[in-house]
Design a protein around this nucleic acid. Structure first.
Length: 441
RNA sequence: GUGGAUGUAGCUCAGUUGGUUAGAGCACUGGAUUGUGGUUCCAGGGGUCGGGGGUUCGAAUCCCCUCAUCCACCCCA
């Protein structure tokens, strides 16, 4: 016998985990579409050179690579952004810009596992390609906001920052050359504290204590969004990039306010940097107020040149990605996941062996009226079947044996309470459907 | 990839300095109740002690290797 097992970092999803997972994906899809984003998909497997071009050393180590049967060097995609870049380089001419797409798909990374970190996981990206407009920056935050609300999350904060502001400061104090190392250190601020961040900046970027102090001072700005903007202006006096960044942030905050977003949902946070090198403008990270320690559940930002490796055409854009698995873990911890093990709400026990066709007719009637209905597959004792229905979280059972069917009736039982009433099955069975509607809502 | 911890029934865990046939609770299946679930009672199924090798008269227990999970680093979703 072969031992049944799954690879490290790869998982099975039984119904209890797949049902909430699909619900989350459905919600994301609906929100993306409500802003006019259109779906795309790309192959899981790409030519290795396509994926290796952008990624940088760390990502390349995590790439699943192999040679296919035709001797081609291939690799599994490790995110959805690089495939998007390749996709745009190939199709931008036909698609036209601006182009708004969403992409919900599985990606693979051969890195070490940890809670909420797997080797196969799903990303839910949305991006707006081909525009530098502040409108796209604002809309990205609106999508994140609506997504959180649609998921039933009531306490979240979208942190935003602008790489231009960070870069402006680094240029001003002479650290522009090692921006990536400085920002990587800065990203750890909430985790390891200012002293260690300064130490790391000195070690990896060669920052002097004065330089490190200047970065930390700016990152530590606090107050309302308006107050932080006001403090930023003198710090970047005479620094063109930085001033442009401040102006952009001001426009975004004004736009979000105009769109009706509550101020407490948006926090200007000069300390967030995001590790990824390709961000050049506004950056977003979304935290759940009761669970800040799990990190950002939806992050993204603006980039100047998405597909520079694959085409001469300059494609600026902005996008963000929902951390599906992280968010699921958080929602479970917050008790926001209903643990349904069924996708139907009406259960029809099959307990009179000679009446299968009646049950099939009944099922068709209910499905036709819009109620997902399951008929038990074999004629067993009624008690057993009700137990099955109860355990799986059905809301109502529609019970009918010869006694009822002979007089064209059925019993409707609300499983949570045990309340049972008898209804006529004579079409259009309005009273029965109304009673179901009342329970299922 | 580096460092540390853990691995006994589907789940949570007991298991004495190595010593008969490895236990409990919950879950599961059946019955009490052959047309009405969640409670109760009774009975039952289910374990190569993660896997492989070694030490020993004897290993769940000690040693080595391996696989997996968790934590930290790294990086990130």
């Amino acid at each position: 016998m072969i031992t049944p097992r799954t690879l490290k970092g790869f998982r099975d999803y039984p119904p209890a985990s797949m049902i909430p997972r699909e619900r989350l994906i459905d919600t994301a899809r609906a929100v993306y579409r409500s802003f006019g984003f259109a779906p795309i998909d790309t192959p899981a497997l790409e030519y290795r050179e396509i994926l290796e071009g952008k990624a940088g050393e760390e990502s390349n180590k995590q790439l699943y690579r192999f040679e296919d049967h035709g001797g081609r060097e291939v690799a599994l995609r490790f995110d959805l952004t690089v495939p998007l870049a390749r996709f745009m380089a190939q199709h931008a001419a036909n698609l036209g810009t601006p182009f708004k797409r969403y992409h919900i798909a599985t990606v693979w990374r051969g890195e070490n596992t940890q809670r909420g970190r797997y080797r196969e996981f799903m990303q839910c990206d949305f991006d707006t390609i081909g525009t530098r407009s502040v409108a796209a920056d604002i809309e990205t935050a609106l999508v994140i906001h609506d997504l959180m609300q649609a998921l039933g999350l009531t306490a979240f904060t979208i942190h935003l920052n602008n790489r231009q502001v960070l870069n402006g400061l680094l240029e001003k104090i002479g650290l522009a050359d090692c921006a990536a190392a400085v920002l990587r250190a800065l990203d750890k601020l909430p985790k390891i504290g200012p002293d260690k961040v300064a130490a790391e900046m000195a070690a990896t970027a060669g920052a002097t204590p004065e330089q490190a102090q200047a970065v930390l001072q700016m990152a530590g700005l606090s107050g309302t969004n308006g107050e932080i903007l006001a403090q930023l202006t003198p710090l970047l006096a005479g620094q063109e990039t930085g001033q442009a960044g401040i102006t952009r942030l001001r426009e975004i905050l004004a736009g979000l306010e105009a769109a009706g977003i509550e101020e407490r949902r948006i926090r200007l946070d000069v300390s967030i940097a995001r590790g990824l090198d390709y961000y050049t403008g506004v950056i977003y990270e979304t935290f759940l107020d009761p669970l800040p320690e799990i990190g950002s559940v939806c992050s993204g930002g603006r980039y100047d040149n998405l597909a520079g490796l694959y085409t001469r055409q300059e494609l600026p854009g902005i996008g963000a990605s929902l951390g599906l698995d992280r968010l699921l873990a958080a929602m479970e911890e917050l008790g926001l996941l209903e643990s349904h093990r069924t996708t139907a709400s009406v259960f029809i026990p099959y307990f009179d062996p000679g009446r299968l066709n009646d049950y099939l007719r009944l099922g068709a009637l209910l499905r036709g009226a819009g109620y997902a209905t399951e008929i038990f597959p074999e004629a067993r004792k009624l008690g057993q079947q009700l137990k099955y229905a109860d355990q799986r979280g059905f809301q109502v059972a529609l019970i009918a044996g010869s006694n009822e069917l002979d007089s064209n009736q059925c019993q409707l039982k609300e499983l949570a309470t045990g309340n049972t009433h008898t209804f006529s099955l004579t079409p259009p069975a309005t009273e029965l459907l109304a009673a179901i509607q009342k329970i299922v809502d």
